Amino acid sequence: MSNKSVGYAMLLLIVGNLIAVFSDALIKTLGDGVAVFQFVFFRQLTAVIILLPFCAKSSLPELTSGLKWHALRAHIWLFGAVFMVFAINSMPLATANAIFYAAPLIMLPLAFVFFREKLSKQSVLTGVIGFIGVLVVIRPTHIDWAAISALVVALTLAGNNLLIRKLPTHQTVAQTLLLTNLVGMPASFGLALWEGEAWNWAPLLTAAGSSFFILIYAATCVVAYRSVESNKIASAEYSGLLGAVLVGIVWFGEMPEIEMLIGAALIILPLLLLAKVEQKQKRARKKEVQDVVEMSLESDFSLATDPTVER
């Protein structure tokens, strides 16, 4: 873990999630007729092209370090990307994103089980209230394939973010993202061939734009989750829902209902409260350390000036 603050890590995630909404919006412009596996392959291909200049001077040992973890993340990411395309094209943008943001809540028990992270009452409460907000937004009266796909995306996002902790810390963000896409390309190419659709290069530019925005989001996740325990900042992922609402209104004319606004409030307000609590606790710990140091110095000074103490 680095010394970056909780507030800094949360700010990174907020910015990253707001930017990621534009990636989802570009995917939604494709409509239902897109060849899904082919498009996912195009996303990975364009991502590799974007990242290669930033990794041109990387040595082979640098790129092969922790390869098994990169391979695991790559195929989880690929799995989630396929379901993401289906979910985004099958429901309103804000609704799909609301389900995606179940990922922070999923991360809490996963972090506890696999990384033995201690869960504070505040982080658990924030996650639970946030998830209630998600339920208010989607009002699940029945489960369809679109909702199931969105939940699969949430699960893959949670797993990918937690696995960042297993990656070599000496690798740059660009190297990490390059490997995530490069290692998964054989599988995505094979799926595109298995799909059997005629190759259509028209969506390539859309794939490039989607890759660009999602790479920024992925980069913020790598930096943030390497810096701070995930349970302290995972709720910042919810912030992108506001961006999804706004983009849905402006770009696709998807007007949110009152339930959407109530749910968004339940998601965002606990996030702000958690940030305030963490900041207060950090100040208290800092003051406690200072008090201990001051008491120690005073004790040393008293011993040094006491004439009855033998030297």
Rank of each mutant, 00 (worst) to 15 (best):
T156M: 10
P104G: 09
L269N: 05
G184L: 03
T29R: 04
V223N: 02
A96H: 01
E62L: 14
A218T: 14
K232R: 15
L135S: 02
L273W: 12
E288D: 13
S2D: 09
N181V: 06
M84Q: 08
L241W: 02
M260L: 08
L63S: 03
S296W: 10
Q281V: 11
L51V: 09
K232Y: 11
V113A: 14
H75G: 00
T169F: 09
G190D: 06
A98G: 11
T169H: 14
G196Y: 08
E195S: 12
Q290R: 15
P270G: 11
R165T: 08
T64K: 15
A218C: 11
A9K: 08
A94F: 09
I50L: 14
A265Q: 07
E197V: 08
L167P: 07
F252H: 01
S296M: 10
L110M: 15
S123D: 11
V245L: 14
A304Y: 12
S211P: 00
N160H: 07
V309R: 12
A218E: 08
A102H: 05
K166H: 13
V137D: 00
G263E: 02
P92R: 04
L26Y: 05
A275G: 06
L179T: 02
E229T: 13
G127Q: 06
Q175F: 08
L167C: 11
L241P: 00
W199L: 12
V228D: 07
P256V: 07
A147S: 13
E254W: 01
G243K: 01
A147R: 10
R226G: 13
I106Y: 11
E117W: 03
L12E: 03
R43A: 06
L272F: 15
I164H: 10
I148F: 15
I148T: 15
A56C: 08
A146P: 09
S58D: 14
I14K: 12
S23Q: 10
G240C: 00
I262T: 07
Q175V: 13
N161L: 11
P307R: 01
S210Y: 05
W145Y: 09
S123M: 12
L18E: 07
R43N: 04
L193F: 14
